[in-house]
Design a protein around this nucleic acid. Structure first.
Lengths: 147, 147
DNA sequence: TTGCATCCTCTAGCCACTAGAGGATCAAGC
DNA sequence: GCTTGATCCTCTAGTGGCTAGAGGATGCAA
């Protein structure tokens, strides 16, 4: 059980120092011990917790979902039904994002293949963007997903 | 050439009133004429411009890219090379998002299919999240893309 | 005239960070 | 002992692309 500085924890988990402080601020990580110099001191339990958080974020879980997952993982006697639900929801969300992006991709592909060498006045890219009727299919991807 | 209120423009383009004002504020839409009551008055040119913006946003173009595209479309004598470049970049970005999400999906699929009926202490979902070594492949999707 | 819809401006909130100011402390080398 | 540079601290503000709400003015129909 060795003590880690915030920098060492950051290196060990590949999570930025500022992000670690942020996670503490929003309550994903507990308030750590402090040395006499006021610096944060972490143990390996926090390292595991941060690794868990990082992994869940990489899988696209929102902070609120991670909060729930952490709470579950802190109470091993609870039913894990909620964990299953959260994971299934996340899978569905990713699926829906993928299909939206694929529709988008088709549309963009058509825009790109219309590329021209001339002036804007003849430019198919601009033209296609100007006129939605050029579109083969509806594409209503919300900005947040598409960007 | 009929005059439109902001509400009418919103309805015609399916863009929210507040979003229209926001686009004006960040300079995507010009400052419109104002009636004696200080209300905004739009013409059909602005309607086209807003439709253009909306379409580009649906395709995932960032506001800065849209600014450039609009400037091109305002100057039909310019070369459209830049429009081609922007479209190609956007396609590449979407492609990369799709492949990251697909990697994610595989990972999540494994998490979900590990769903159990028992207690958290036996829960594969939590366990897989706890230990990155369970992962078949690396997945480093930045949060912004994955969420 | 009443009442509701629409409009106005301005400010703050969303998410998950990220960056920077302005300063304290530490560790290594001379 | 002194310098130098890395690391740490807190606090505030910025990112993108909106969205929501306060607090009020105006328009329009019954």
């Amino acid at each position: 059980m060795q003590a880690l500085s915030i920098g060492a924890l950051a290196k060990a988990t590949d999570v930025k120092v500022t992000t670690i402080r942020f996670y503490e601020q929003i309550g994903l990580l507990p308030q750590p011990l402090r040395g006499s110099n006021d610096r944060r001191i972490y143990d390996e339990q926090t390292l595991s917790r941060l690794a868990f958080i990082k992994h869940a974020r990489q899988l696209g879980f929102a902070v609120d979902a991670i909060r729930t997952l952490l709470q579950l993982s802190d109470n091993p006697d609870q039913s894990c039904e909620q964990a299953n639900i959260l994971a299934a929801e996340q899978l569905a969300a990713v699926d829906s994002k993928i299909s939206r992006l694929q529709a988008l991709r088709g549309e963009l592909q058509r825009v790109v293949s219309a590329a021209c060498q001339g002036r804007v006045s003849d430019c198919r890219v601009i033209e296609v963007l100007s006129d939605h009727n050029h579109c083969a299919a509806d594409h209503d991807a919300p900005a947040a997903l598409a960007s």
